[in-house]
Amino acid sequence: RPTEQTETADLPACDSLNPGNLQLVSELKNPSSSCSVDVSAMWWERAGTKEPCIITACEDVVSLWKPLNSLQWEKVHTWHFTEVPVLQIVPVPDVYNLICVALGSLEIREIRALLCSSGDESEKQVLLKSGDIKAVLGLTKRRLVSSTGNFCNQQIQIMSFAEDGSSKDEQLLMPPDETVLTFAEVQGTQEALLGTTTVNSIVIWNLKTGQLLKKVHIDDSYQASVCHRAYSEMGLLFVVLSYPCAKESQAFGSPVFQLLVINPKTARSVGVLLCSLPQGEAGRFLEGDVKDHIAAAVLTSGTIAIWDLLLGHCTALLPPVSDQSWSLVKWSGTDSHLLAGQKDGNIFIYR
């Protein structure tokens, strides 16, 4: 169907959604004077053993927490930032002894690697990249992609890490003639990378050769879309986008996520599913994360909403806890848990 006929996901009423679908597993108390900005869960190697750890990021400190038992966590490392504030954690899959972070004020100015020296386990940080960084994403096979500059002087770079976390290799991808805003790796086609641009195109690269394979212009209904996930299946690309700038409409309500299908050969696309806010839920998309077929979003109302993209509707709503609005939501990279964060630094882990 053409995009204007995009199927709208069912809009169940708020009170029919059961927050009991989410069970609280544990909580991390992180009293800090600065604002909580990100959370992530990753494997960390200590003394030859890999442990599922949680990373919390405030503006001036990043902490690594290891599990004491199934309910309690212990802070084992902290890295401090006095000059440039932390903006986000950049998880790099397949790396077990290094955390990447993006630093800056509103826009990314630096990407740093945080690690521990093997001898005394003391915290170290290494500057990987600086400049006018527009987007960054950790990729499988210990790689990191970043874009710097705008359409006329844009550089898209892949950085590879050695097993010990040291920076090993650099490669450039052919830049498109539009500024790249977000990246997404493609599940099902290992060496393909997607990017979204400021003028609503999706670009496709070959990561191995650096070639720019295709530019697909998508519907202009919603500007500045963010690409969360991409899946390659039966010759088609299925792309999950979110729309932080979308306005509410009579026909589609308040759109949060959209599943788009693209034929990369013909550069044609159609919207197949639009996930809007459940009826009665006010606000719009603030930030979100997608893992497999489950999408989670923090709404401006301070509530977290979760959609099952296979069922096509919202399956759970998590209202603010202790009168504190949610500000962060991430899926764990080590299990199926949901990490929900509040501005004061407290992190709640749900199953």
């Binding site: 052919m174 070639q211 720019l212 295709k214 039966m234 010759g235 299908v261 034929n263 990369p264 013909t266």
Partner: peptide, 23 residues
Amino acid sequence: CSTADLGPISLNWFEELSSEAPP
């Protein structure tokens, strides 16, 4: 959703586009 609107589909799209695109 009808895939007819998307045009002809190729299972080998990645290899085909890689052989057509400039190096």
